[in-house]
Amino acid sequence: MAPPAVTPASPSVAHGKRFLIAWIVLSAIATPLVAIFLGPAIPPGNDSVQASEQVFSNTVMVSISTPVCVFVLLFLLYVFASFRSRGSALVDGPPIRGDARIQLIWMVVTSATVLFLAGFGTYELLKSGSGGGQGPNAAFQPAGYKRALDVQVIGQQWEFTYRYPTYGGVEVPHLVLPADTLIRLHVTSLDAIHSFWAYQLGVKADANPGVDNIVYVETKGPLQFDIHCAELCGLWHGYMFDTGHVVGASTFAAWIKRQQSYFEPVMRYLPPYATNYLPDPSRRAG
């Protein structure tokens, strides 16, 4: 077989320049559009301070992703259009084995992007915990954490219950939180691992047996929110959901008072409030 013809290495068209200009123009158009229209539309919405921060994070992420996405897709389209083999004869491309300059630029650009993202993420995380479970002894707490209202979330197969240590440790089956308050949720479990996911509040924290997983959330106005278990916890995991409420301060005060008197008769059968409860060894329960 005769060696195929080789296309000349020197390009007749300035493909590189053409592609780069197209990329910059397209990115300059697409990125602001994404940042203004798509980013803020990404859930979980603005129903708590943490949720708003997540929306901001998502906006930044999706905006940075846009030029990357445009680069690769445009590159592929450009290549398909310009460099496809035409005709049936086998023709070799120019034997280019690399280019140190392009490699260096690529490394610098990707590294800078990555470091920016990591720095940005760290900043956002440390500012308020951003709604993720941060365990019993996180080094960074949100501002004003000492005044936060403690609420305990207890996961068990297959429901969540809630205790309010500030109100005598009363345990209730549905979550109600006061509006415009910084709340410290203590998430724990009695058996398998669950995950407490309050969707609109932008809160997710795993419930581990024997662990006090703390998560901060600062509520805004009155709200009805969805609670869901987000970690596979056994047979009825799919049905482990609930609805919670954020209510005004006075409504909350009245509600918690009602709960205290309603659950008064059973309170003495409950173990005293603790950051976690160790039930009997969880063997062969289901």
Partner: peptide
């Protein structure tokens, strides 16, 4: 989200994003 070593989360965030290089 599990509450493990929350103070190490910035490190894991960085190392994870480093893989994209």
């Amino acid at each position: 989200m599990s509450g493990i070593n929350s103070n190490l989360r910035p490190f894991y965030m960085l190392s994870t994003e480093l893989i994209s290089i």
